[in-house]
């Protein structure tokens, strides 16, 4: 982690997102999430489906529907509050200052418009380029994200490209205006491992080249291990552990992080090693209001865990939300 001083690029404070459907109790998807992203930093948000990682990113991008969604807290980009920004101003900042890459490039690209046009559209709108200039810039962008023969490819439709190529196009669009913050929401989940490796490499290069900050959202601990400086582990809408990646993976303190790392089959594990499964599933969660949501599944839980909500405590650069953390034997 680069110890960048001063105000962070992105400052998320106590973000809470609740969905309200008529006739049904409110569901809280994100329950008080706070984190910072410094300029040029790569931050990971890790968790399983339903932990609120994608909703967090959608809330930052202001892409959630206005009806039935209740967002509180604060999201500041360069000190400017995004949550209260007018729609027009937000549209302007989206794409120019912050942009997003989604999991499924096929559904996030317009299927009836050639990819070149989808890139030039962004360039013309946000950077005021004329048609010719935008076209040249688009070719250059496609070339930069590693699309072979970009001059010809520019007229291709999304369905004519493979999944990996489509994701490259998405990255090209996201980077078209040299945003300061890029949010990648499971960008490689739909791809094969060899293609995933290509895309991760590309993201790394692009971030290094453009100096953009990156928020990497994924369920794959392996992906963040090699990519992110700081890793946030989410569980049931709250960050349960945050640390610099070497510390997080080296000595996971939260029983959830610890358990996850022990429950996935690893390529580098000795043969025949049994997996330590985490019992139950997310439906066993209890609400955070007066307990630790993970307590029912936790092998280290104590009485207190079902009575008092654990507070997030930061010690030595590590945030930990647990009454009875795994002993830091190696620290």
């Amino acid at each position: 982690m680069t110890g960048s001083k001063g105000a962070p690029l992105l400052q998320v404070r106590d973000l809470r997102v609740a969905f309200r459907r008529r006739g049904e109790p409110e569901t809280v998807a994100v329950d008080g999430v706070s984190f910072d992203v410094a300029a040029g930093q790569v931050v990971g948000l890790v968790g399983e489906s339903g932990c609120g990682k994608s909703v967090t990113s959608m809330a930052i991008m202001r892409l959630l529907p206005q009806r039935g969604v209740h967002i509180t807290g604060s999201v500041k980009l360069d000190g400017e509050e995004l949550l209260t920004l007018s729609d027009a101003r937000m549209r302007e900042r989206r794409g120019r200052d912050l942009s997003m890459v989604f999991q499924d490039p096929l559904s996030s690209l317009n299927p009836v418009i050639p990819i070149g046009l989808q890139i030039t559209e962004v360039l013309r709108r946000h950077r005021g380029m004329d048609k010719e200039k935008a076209r040249e810039a688009a070719v250059e962008l496609l070339d930069r994200v590693g699309i072979p023969d970009p001059r010809r490819r520019i007229t291709a439709y999304p369905h004519q490209l493979s999944g990996g190529m489509r994701q490259r196009v998405m990255i090209a669009i996201a980077l078209a205006c040299a945003p300061r913050l890029l949010i990648a929401d499971e960008p490689t989940t739909a791809l094969d491992v060899t293609i995933q490796a290509q895309i991760l490499e590309l993201l790394k290069e692009m971030v290094a080249e453009t100096g953009a900050a990156l928020i990497m959202i994924t369920h794959d601990l392996g992906v963040v291990a090699g990519l992110c400086e700081t890793v946030n582990v989410l569980y049931a809408g709250r960050i349960v552990e945050r640390a610099q990646r070497h510390r997080l993976f080296g000595t996971p303190r939260h029983p959830y992080t610890h358990g996850l790392l022990r429950s996935i089959p690893r390529l580098d594990a000795p043969a025949g090693e049994a997996l330590e499964a985490i019992p139950g599933s997310v439906v066993d969660n209890v609400p955070w209001t007066h307990a630790c949501a993970f307590a029912p599944r936790c092998h280290r839980s104590v009485e207190r865990c079902l009575e008092v909500t654990p507070a997030g405590e930061t010690t030595g650069g590590r945030l930990l939300r647990c009454h009875n953390p795994v002993p830091a034997s190696a620290e």
Binding site: P279, G280, V283, D284, A295, P296, R297, C298, H299, S301, V302
Partner: peptide
């Protein structure tokens, strides 16, 4: 704790 969890799950089912 694990028993509680198992119990809870059983109750729910």
């Amino acid at each position: 704790m694990t028993t509680t969890w198992a119990q809870r799950r059983k109750d729910r089912i």
